[in-house]
């Protein structure tokens, strides 16, 4: 028998600190698998964000720069401008990217920076204890929307992929989920595509991953999978929103 599934080389042997059933771990793994597959580990520079994925550097066996909350796309821009031949990616939560870092993500995408952004949308501020995020669903109870999010006052859950896909500078935008084995495989394909876009100098690539936070959703990991299927995917459809085939040139 041949080994068909093993720990990717781009991850250290360290165990994740994530809660049981948290999808951050799955997403870390598939990003690492993609880096392995493209054989770019020793020329990849990761940019971590502030959120439950802040310890990216403890897990990935690559160079990593920590960014202030929301600023990862700007930090990644700085790194990539210095090393155009390195693979630079950010790994950001929905509070980080869709709240405090909205400006940075929009303008980095609009400039068509040749980087890859992995956006982990778990509809909540995980790290700080489950407050409302811009992506929190209507009616969703969080520690700061005790009666459930209402569009009056709190607005609607923000659809980052749809928004970014409208920007000319953006080359690849997809939304995926990791709630079933089939979806995990599709997610890996999308993330591989996003990194390949960068390798081929195609410009800005973005993958939104719907992710479970069983702890702050106050659900079992199994129920969290169900919530992604029944509640999140209908509102946040899984789709490739944009895929350029020819790079922008002068």
């Amino acid at each position: 028998m041949k080994q068909v599934f093993e720990r990717p080389e781009s991850l250290k042997e360290v165990s994740f600190h994530f809660c049981p059933g948290c999808h951050h771990g799955i997403i870390h793994r598939i990003v690492a698998e993609v880096i392995d597959k493209l054989e770019v580990r020793t020329r990849t520079i990761g940019v971590s964000s502030v959120g439950c994925s802040v310890f990216l550097y403890d897990y990935f066996n690559i160079d990593v720069c920590e960014a202030p909350h929301g600023r990862a796309p700007a930090v990644a821009t700085g790194v990539k401008r210095v090393y155009k031949d390195r693979i630079v990616f950010t790994f950001q939560g929905d509070g980080d990217l869709a709240a405090i870092g909205t400006s940075e993500i929009i303008h980095t995408a609009n400039r068509g920076e040749n980087i890859t952004v992995i956006f982990v949308n778990n509809t909540v501020f995980g790290m700080t204890g489950g407050q409302m995020a811009p992506t929190t669903m209507l009616g969703q109870e969080t520690t700061t929307t005790p009666l459930g999010r209402s569009f009056i006052g709190d607005g609607y859950p923000i659809k980052m992929s749809e928004m970014l896909a409208t920007l000319e500078g953006c080359s690849f935008v997809a939304r995926v989920a990791v709630n079933t084995p089939a979806n995990v495989r599709k997610a890996r394909k999308a993330i591989l595509k996003a990194f390949e876009m960068q390798v081929n100098n195609m410009g800005f690539s973005f993958v939104e991953v719907l992710s479970a936070c069983p702890t702050n959703w106050k659900m079992s990991p199994q129920d969290a999978l169900k919530r992604i299927k029944d509640e999140l995917i209908p509102y946040f459809p899984l789709k490739i929103f944009k895929e350029k085939t020819i790079p922008d040139t002068l």
């Binding site: 700007a74 930090v75 990644a76 790194v79 990539k80 401008r81 940075e104």
Partner: peptide, 26 residues
């Protein structure tokens, strides 16, 4: 060299952070 007009001073300083982390004079 690279000149980049950022979308804000916050973005600009973080680009400096990234370039500096990559070892460049920024």
């Amino acid at each position: 060299g690279t000149f980049l007009q950022a979308e804000s001073e916050i973005a600009a300083i973080n680009m400096v952070l990234g370039a500096s982390a990559a070892g460049a004079r920024a």
